[in-house]
């Protein structure tokens, strides 16, 4: 039998533990909200149409915008996706479908290590590999460095998503006389597509704000540039440049840039959530 005394003590502990956990959740939420509110407070006043449409002005001239950096970010992220999504998905399919061997284990381990490599190290690696050899900072090098960071994330999330597809569906395909590769493309990838898109978007959101690797690779550009072998402006690098400069006007623009960047990441994350939720209900009913 439990005495009343012990029961009361348990109740107290229960309340204390719950309050503690609640407090931690509140701290996490409040600090996140504080960042967003502060960013909004500093960034929104500096946002105007010119920010989205104009090039940066020379030092001392007020006004101007980050139009080239916004476009540059989209270009570099596009390059990164164009490389990391197909390669990562292919590697994920390999791991999930044929990776029950030594090579699979090595690839899996490499991915996990690569996920933990600091992004600045990736930047230096691509710098040595591409920038030093071509003696040229370039949009392509920037895209490649972000792709290297995305690659292990896309690979492992693809593998996980494919493993979630029930064996019974694979067997249904095989029993119809479909070759293995046809079951993979026609059934497995098809069934997992929501999760695959979500995985790609999560990786994209993860690299959208990366600054360090871009400093070594894409560098920066004060003008419009759409050529892949030229340095290109990106939002994170532009924010970094403006934030460490001693001009008030540049600081204001850095806040606006940070707000726009966070907004982009937020939109990517929300889309990923929505697709993930749909996939979650659709595939399992």
């Amino acid at each position: 039998m439990i005495s009343l005394d012990r029961l009361a003590r348990r109740r107290v502990w229960n309340t204390v533990a719950m309050a503690g956990a609640g407090l931690c959740a509140a701290v996490a939420l409040v600090s996140l909200l504080a960042v967003l509110v502060w960013l909004g407070g500093k960034g929104i006043p500096a946002l105007d149409l010119a920010f989205f449409t104009e090039l940066p002005k020379p030092v001392g001239e007020p006004g101007g915008g980050m139009a080239n950096a916004i476009a540059g970010t989209l270009i570099v992220l596009g390059i990164a996706c164009a490389i990391a999504v197909p390669v990562g998905m292919g590697a994920g399919v390999y791991l999930a479908e044929y990776g029950r061997n030594r090579l699979g284990g090595v690839v899996r381990f490499t991915c996990d290590v690569l996920t933990g490599v600091p992004s600045i190290a990736v930047g230096i690696y691509v710098y040595i590999l591409m920038v030093l050899t071509s003696k040229q900072f370039s949009a392509l090098a920037g895209g490649v460095s972000l792709a290297v960071i995305m690659l292990p994330i896309v690979t492992r999330s693809t593998e996980e998503m494919l493993r979630l597809v029930p064996v019974s569906l694979r067997e249904a395909g095989l029993a119809l006389g479909a070759p293995h590769w046809r079951v993979v493309t026609g059934v497995v990838l098809h069934t997992a597509r929501g999760g695959l898109i979500t995985g790609g978007l999560v990786a994209l959101a993860r690299v959208a704000g990366e600054t360090a690797p871009l400093l070594f690779t894409a560098f920066n550009n004060r003008y419009w540039s759409a050529s892949l072998d030229q340095p290109i402006a990106t939002l994170p690098v532009q924010i970094f440049t403006y934030a460490i400069a001693p001009f008030d006007d540049w600081h204001r623009q850095a806040w606006a840039g940070a707000l726009v960047l966070v907004g982009m990441v937020l939109i990517i994350s929300i889309i990923a959530r929505l697709i993930g939720r749909q996939a979650g209900t659709g595939a399992w009913r």
């Binding site: 119809l176 006389g177 059934v187 098809h190 069934t191």
Partner: peptide
Amino acid sequence: VQVRRRVGMVFQKPNPFPTM
């Protein structure tokens, strides 16, 4: 694969392709 084209199978649990 050729064998399975000639020998069809229906499983214990219904398993239609859910995305189709």
